[in-house]
Design a protein around this nucleic acid. Structure first.
Length: 444
RNA sequence: CGGGGCAUAGCGCAGCCUGGUAGCGCGACGGUUUUGGGUACCGUAGGUCGGAGGUUCGAAUCCUCCUGCCCCGACCA
């Protein structure tokens, strides 16, 4: 992409409304624009990252055996009356009346709808288990939106719903999601730590929140720091096999948010030197809730014994739009964002330091064409901005690699390649730069 | 939802107390400079002062109401 054709409204000053670093950087880097309190337009650069995150989640969900679909944002109030939640949900739910005076709502979640869909299509235990998911915008009319996309009113969420014949098999479904979540966050360069969460009236041990550690996080957390070094399940993990060993490994060491924190137990289980008390951002949650919706909504399954029982269900959320904020909180410096390569909006930023100089222009065009052909995402800064401005802009938007082409370097057949994360620079001849980034053996 | 604040040019702000018809920095645009970590100089454009009403000869400025936004707390993916 040529910057001259792109839409990248960089802000040089900090907008006064942005308090925390991820919010400031997203506004300054031209990723989002606020349209109303807690509601954002996703500008081209922000949308690219959102899509990258979505794709990682999709790949891991599919790998774990879940099936993608798409449910609408608007739902009928009557559906929510079936579960009793229409009245139970407070003013957080945005209620809408259509032209025919039908009561509707902008969905804050989809348990009711998925249960209705499921019950119309599945009747027998032979068709189970099932896990259906979608990516969709949700709306919760928060009393106090803040922190940019980390706590907006409109937000993108991946929500999955599992259906099983009994609790034992539901536990297997739960474990699959648990393992998939470990991989999802790791692929984004985050350590998503599963923590004991409140299970509400259902009880049991099948509820975990996945938390990314960050000083600016909204909840206090207490962990045994060894949990940070546990192994992430590999891509080849067998989702058809027994995953309970992995789940046990990740749930044995102490890790809990302040709501469920048990100080006495923390101290008893965790050597003093290993105790860490910090803050975190919730980026996902896995939850088994049994027949909470399937029972009142009569989503019945006939078992092998011929008896009908409500399906045993769980739901599994990932805060997709919130993850942008979480990743930036975890990965930035005083110059700007440092994107992990897996979610970066572009892999390479190509800076032409002297647009109009024949040799520099030609070298940039050659690199741009070669990398584009090799399917490397390149943002080519072909503007006539000052060199200093280009450097600052590339550092701000945080692309993993910068290829810097100027007349001085070209004269010596030297092109500078800078790695954003480390600040490391090396100079290479043009041919090697192209080979390095377009070769199939590229090592980052 | 309780408490506190803000609203003046694209962004950040001054002017308001003590009414006299709007200003600064950055950015944008046009030049000069040909430049390797947001360069310097010259010039230009851009604002119904959030909205409505009121007081006054006269309101960005004083009064009332409304709207939007932010911060602290309670609440939350």
């Amino acid at each position: 992409m040529r910057l001259s054709q792109y839409f990248l409204p960089i802000l040089r000053d900090n907008p006064k409304e942005a308090e925390i670093v991820s919010h400031r950087l997203m506004l300054r880097a031209g990723m989002i624009r606020q349209e109303a309190s807690g509601i954002y337009a996703w500008l081209p650069l922000g949308l690219r990252v959102l899509k990258k995150i979505e794709q990682i989640v999709r790949e891991e969900m599919d790998r774990a055996g879940a099936v993608e679909m798409l449910m609408p944002t608007l739902q009928l109030a009557d559906l929510w009356r079936e579960s009793g939640r229409y009245d139970a949900y407070g003013p957080e739910m945005l209620r809408i009346v259509d032209r025919n005076k039908r009561e509707m709502l902008y969905g804050p979640t989809n348990e009711e709808m998925i249960t209705a869909i499921f019950r119309s299509g599945v009747k027998s235990y032979r068709e189970l288990p099932k896990n259906l998911y979608h990516f969709q915008w949700k709306f919760r009319d928060e009393q106090r939106p803040r922190f940019g996309v980390m706590r907006g009113r409109e937000f993108m969420m991946k929500d999955a719903y599992s259906f099983d014949v009994d609790e034992a098999s539901a536990r297997i479904s739960y474990n699959r999601m648990f393992v998939a979540y470990l991989r999802i966050f790791a692929r984004m360069g985050l350590t998503g730590i599963p923590m004991r969460a409140e299970t509400g009236p259902i009880g049991g041990d099948l509820s975990h929140e996945f938390i990314v550690l960050a000083e600016t996080g909204e909840s206090g957390v207490f962990i045994n720091k060894d949990v940070l070094n546990l192994p992430i399940p590999p891509e080849t993990v067998d989702y058809a096999g027994d995953l309970s060993g992995i789940v046990t490994q990740w749930t044995t060491l102490y890790a809990a948010t302040e709501d469920v924190h048990d100080a006495a137990r923390f101290e008893a289980e965790t050597p003093e030197a290993k105790r860490v008390s910090t803050r975190g951002i919730e980026v996902g949650q896995v939850f088994f809730f049994g027949d909470k919706y399937s029972k009142p909504m009569k989503a019945m399954i006939t078992g092998p014994d011929g008896v009908e029982r409500p399906a045993q269900c769980g739901s599994y959320g990932v805060g997709v739009s919130r993850l942008l904020g979480a990743i930036i909180e975890a990965s930035h410096d005083d110059k700007g964002i440092i994107w992990p390569e897996s979610v970066a909006p572009f892999t390479v930023g190509l800076a032409n330091l002297k647009v109009g100089d024949d040799a520099t222009d030609a070298a940039c065009e050659k690199i741009y064409a070669a990398l584009t052909k090799a399917k490397v995402d390149v943002l080519y800064d072909d503007s006539d901005d000052r060199p200093g401005g280009k450097f600052a802009k590339l550092d701000l938007i945080g692309l993993p690699y910068q290829i810097i082409v100027g007349p001085k370097g070209i004269a010596a057949d030297e092109i500078e390649v800078k790695t954003r994360a480390t600040g490391e620079r090396e100079t290479l001849p043009l041919g090697e730069v192209i080979a390095r980034f377009s070769g199939s053996v590229w090592v980052s």
